[in-house]
Simulated scan of single mutants.
Amino acid sequence: MNRPSRARWTRIAAVTITAVCVGYAPIAMTDIWPYADPQAPAIGQWLLARAVSARYMADALATRTGPYAHSLAALVVHTVLGGLLMLLGPAQLFTAVRRRLRLHRALGVVYALTVLVSMGGAAVYLARTAPKDAFGGEAFWIVLATILVGTVLSTLLGVLAAIGRLPAAHQRWMLLCYGYLMTAPLLRIEWMVLPWFFPGQSMTAINRIALTHLGSLVAFGALLGSRALDRRAKVPGAEGSWAPVPVVVGAQLAGVAGIAWLGVELVGSGAEGRQQFLGYVVPYVACALVMVWRRAVAGREGRAWAREEWGVHLTAMGLAPVFSAGAALVFQHALGVDELTALTAGVGIGCGMLAFFATAVVAVRLMYAREVVRRRPAAETVTLAGSAVVPAA
């Protein structure tokens, strides 16, 4: 039996993600309505109640009603526009692939403005809600705030890259932005799936487990998208490596130490901490192993640019647990939260934030490569002119 080609896997992934986005759009758009009117459609709540239990959904509603009541209008704006973004994202991808540049640019303007307004609604909710009163507590509030900032910054940097005529950097920033947005449907899926692996847990507990790996999954998905769309073996001007083997290996060793520290602290926090560590380390290791494998394959095939990008992100992935450990200590001592909450928040933001920095490194690498190519003809001209006046030996 013939194995599916890379192009076929890419198409399957694109169709699957599009189906998830289109299916989630009406759920997102109607998510807040029941808090304003109990008779309003509640597609997401209906699905959760039947996928898990009515009690599971009712307990979650009881913890959200109060905080949501302070910011209903802002949350309606956020969720309705968030549903629209679920539709605009695949449209942007397909117009880019099909080279419908005018339509792509027009939709891009709508997409960017929609992101900013939608995130504005989320910002109002976070500003009006004390971290301890948010659904999921302080850890979820911190993760939501981080996702908000990452989404806005990646959108703005993507726009600037487009204006600066850096299509490859633009593509990566917008994929990362959409990855951050995909935390919403992914989280809903996990609310339905994780109870099979952790039976008897409340949605709040399931939510904390999901927080530990949301960042790693969506960042990894954005990276896969970047690599699928950029098939260049080499980038002119991108000579040498900004992620040589010693740097990559050192980052992985640091990551092992960070995971060990997080493991000791989380496991020592009791049953809930053990569940969160399991939820964190399994997806993390799976993503890291795939990145190691793809980097090695790219090296064997002589695809220097693919190897470089995998290496940059693998380095960031290795440093993520160290960042998470440091962030947890800061949260615990600066914000006064308990140790488990600080650890949950730390691991919840680590991979997503380091993926942002890795994308920034790749974008700067592309900018630098372009400048190298631009200056190369001038340098060659100077060299030739100088050699013309040197007398022959």
Rank of each mutant, 00 (worst) to 15 (best):
I142G: 00
A130V: 13
P131N: 09
G136H: 09
L153A: 15
T151P: 09
L148D: 11
F140V: 13
L157D: 04
L156F: 10
L153G: 09
A139F: 08
L156C: 13
T151I: 05
V143T: 00
T155C: 03
T155M: 06
L153M: 15
L144F: 03
V152I: 08
L153R: 11
W141M: 02
A127V: 00
A130G: 11
A139N: 06
V152W: 05
P131L: 13
V143G: 00
I142S: 03
G150D: 09
K132R: 14
A139R: 10
A145V: 09
S154K: 01
L156V: 13
R128I: 08
L157A: 06
L144Q: 02
G158I: 01
W141R: 00
L153F: 10
T155H: 00
F140P: 11
G137A: 14
P131W: 02
F135G: 15
L144A: 07
A134K: 14
T146Q: 07
D133H: 15
E138V: 14
L144G: 08
G137H: 15
A130R: 03
I147R: 06
A145G: 05
E138P: 15
W141G: 00
L157Y: 09
L160W: 12
V159E: 00
L144S: 02
A130H: 12
R128T: 01
E138I: 15
A134L: 11
A145I: 07
V152A: 01
W141C: 06
V159Y: 08
V149G: 07
S154H: 10
A134C: 13
G150H: 04
L153K: 05
T151F: 08
L156K: 08
I142L: 03
L153P: 13
